[in-house]
Amino acid sequence: MKIEVKALSHTYDVQVLDNINLVLDEYKAVAIIGVSGSGKSTLLRILSGLEQPTRGEVFVNGRSVKEPGYKKTVGFVFQNHNLFPHLSLLENITLILEKTRGMSKEEAHAIAMENLRLMSLEDQVNKVPKNISGGQAQRASIARALSVNPETIFLDEPTSSLDPILTHEVLTAVENLRNIGKGFIFVTHVISFVRDFADYVIFMHEGKIIEQGPPTFLDNPQEEATKAFMQKVR
């Protein structure tokens, strides 16, 4: 997975990202960490094409995130699963495949079932999101992200609303995807997962990347903000 970010700044009412530059190559799983409000979710959304940056250029695997077709290369897992609540887990996937990827009913059904099975949800496929646990819904959301056959899967704090048991359930499911040949970029507060799954970590503070490298740097952070963060999450 290649990521190239050039002079990226982003502003809502206040500046949330401040002149970010980043060049990464050949990493499979990149974690973005930092305290709330540090800009990590915004960076993730810009990398995924969900939001357009105010200034700067962003390329993922050689494609600009501004390209119209870029979003089709992306799978996204939202904080609160964000499944369409009126559709069953199966329909949540088949609707996308049939309507936006032009697949036949049978083809869409087969792919949806394959990915739901991969997430151990084969018994739940006809249930609507309100009738399953938060962990199952989040796994269904991962299955949905996988179904569109993305190059990169983005996860935005996928366990922030889950208890420790469900968190473990979801993160184990993600870890099992390590060798499926997709790139992962994710935001999380679960440092043990970052250590286990990420091969590159970006630490953000006040809209800037202040420390980055393989996860081992978390054992011996150099910056004061990173040290303070690590003491809190340890």
């Binding site: 969900l50 979003k71 992306v74 996204f76 939202f78 964000n82 996308i96």
Partner: peptide
């Protein structure tokens, strides 16, 4: 978020 998902897909 639902609008974002619709846009993304």
């Amino acid at each position: 978020e639902q609008y974002m998902a619709m846009d993304l897909f």
